[in-house]
């Protein structure tokens, strides 16, 4: 539906040169990731990004059902879903929405790029992304956490992908929009990046930006990526370092 009524009660998104939550335009929300949080899964991660709360489980490689199996390589099956209680308003549907189906597909595409699929022919690697609480930028949050869960599972990959959304808020290009900014901003541009060479693995967008704003957004994403990558790596080594620390102290 075209929905322009929302713009009628649009809040002031920029106040005194700061964003609605007091951030600078290039400032990320607080991001915390913990690896290996689920016992059953082969790999897992829990992430809090702003008020987003995201849980990711990785299962596999396991035998793929015949209709899905590729005799030459593994198949990535990502499933993005929003918990019915994840939103601030109302109760979510239980069936996968068309939005969820699309996000699941583009997320599968991202990880099909980096995972060493040829090593596991005929298998399936499941990436289950559950958005427990949503606060804008959930697909990027899901991908960033899924990367950690895959590495935590010991699945060989070319790179540790991160994802983040850039946006245009009025005439300002900004990074990592929250829910309110997402609802009222003029463009939300999620990127997934392979940091080794800054290749773009996911790029989706609708709204309106000029070519110059697009370039500014790209640069802001790469800059923010340095922080995100570091947090991902810290999460991965943390549980191992904690064991080491026990002995260093003795």
């Amino acid at each position: 539906m075209i929905n322009l009524a929302s713009s009628l009660n649009k809040p002031e998104l920029i106040v005194n040169g700061k964003r609605i939550d007091g951030r600078d335009f290039n400032e990320l929300r607080p991001l915390k990731i913990e690896a290996g949080v689920l016992k059953n899964a082969d790999g897992s991660a829990y992430e809090e990004w702003g008020d987003n709360k995201v849980l990711v489980a990785v299962y596999g490689p396991k035998e793929a059902p015949r209709y899905l199996a590729d005799p030459n390589k593994a198949v990535i099956k990502a499933k993005y879903s929003m918990a019915s209680f994840s939103g601030l308003n109302g109760h979510g549907r239980s069936n996968p929405s068309r939005r969820e189906i699309e996000i699941s597909k583009v997320t599968s595409d991202v990880f099909s790029n980096v995972v060493d699929l040829a090593q596991f022919p005929g298998s399936e690697i499941d990436i289950d992304i559950e958005i427990l609480q949503s606060d804008g930028g959930t697909r990027a949050a899901g991908i960033t956490a899924a990367s950690v869960a895959l590495a935590n599972a010991g699945i060989p990959m070319k790179d540790l992908v991160y994802a983040v959304s850039a946006a245009r808020i009025e005439d300002k290009v900004s990074i990592d929009v929250n829910m309110i900014e997402d609802n009222y901003s003029d463009a939300d541009i999620p990127f997934a990046i392979s940091p080794r060479n800054n290749d773009v693995l996911l790029l989706q967008f609708d709204g309106g930006v000029t070519r110059e704003q697009m370039k500014e957004a790209e640069n802001m994403v790469i800059e923010a990526g340095k922080t995100i990558s570091k947090i991902q790596k810290d999460a991965l080594k943390k549980s191992y370092e904690e064991v080491s620390k026990q002995y260093e102290e003795k």
Binding site: G43, Q119, F120, A151, A153, G154, I155, P156, M157, K237
Partner: peptide, 18 residues
Amino acid sequence: ILGLFDESSNSLIPLKSI
């Protein structure tokens, strides 16, 4: 993978593997 790289022996020790 996530692992430990041993510079003296030039070997990569995985922390988890398949």
